[in-house]
Computed example of a mutant assay.
Amino acid sequence: MLVTYLEASRDLCDTNSIIFGAALAVCRIIGAKVPTAGRATGQSSAIPAWRKRIEERIEKARALIGRLICSRSGNNRPRIVRTVRMAFAGTNVSLSQLDIMQKLTERIDDLKQRIAAWGKRIRRYTERSTRFNQNRLFQSDQKRLYESLKRPMASGTGPAL
Rank of each mutant, 00 (worst) to 15 (best):
L2A: 13
V3S: 05
Y5V: 10
Y5G: 03
L6H: 05
E7D: 02
S9C: 15
R10P: 04
D11M: 10
L12D: 15
D14S: 06
N16E: 12
N16H: 06
I19F: 07
I19R: 04
F20Y: 14
A22H: 10
A23T: 11
V26M: 03
R28A: 10
R28Y: 06
I30M: 11
G31F: 03
A32W: 08
T36R: 11
T36P: 14
A37H: 07
A40I: 12
T41H: 06
S45C: 11
A46K: 06
A46F: 09
P48R: 14
R51W: 09
K52V: 10
K52T: 08
I54M: 01
E56T: 14
E56C: 13
R57I: 01
S71N: 07
R72N: 13
S73N: 15
G74S: 03
N75Q: 06
R77S: 00
I80V: 09
R82P: 03
R82Q: 07
R82W: 04
T83G: 01
R85F: 02
R85P: 02
R85W: 00
F88K: 04
A89W: 07
A89Q: 12
G90C: 12
N92P: 13
V93R: 03
S94K: 09
S94C: 11
L95C: 04
Q97G: 04
Q97N: 07
Q97R: 09
Q97S: 13
D99P: 01
D99Y: 09
D99F: 05
Q102V: 12
T105Y: 01
R107I: 01
I108M: 09
D109Y: 00
D110W: 03
Q113L: 00
I115M: 01
I115K: 03
A117Y: 00
W118R: 05
K120A: 06
R121Q: 14
I122L: 15
I122C: 07
R123P: 09
R123E: 15
R124F: 10
T126G: 07
R128Q: 06
T130N: 12
R131G: 10
F132P: 08
F132V: 15
F138V: 01
D141N: 15
Q142C: 12
K143P: 06
K143M: 04
K143Q: 14
R144S: 03
L145W: 03
S148Q: 05
P152D: 05
G156T: 01
G158Q: 03
P159R: 11
A160I: 15
A160C: 15
L161T: 13
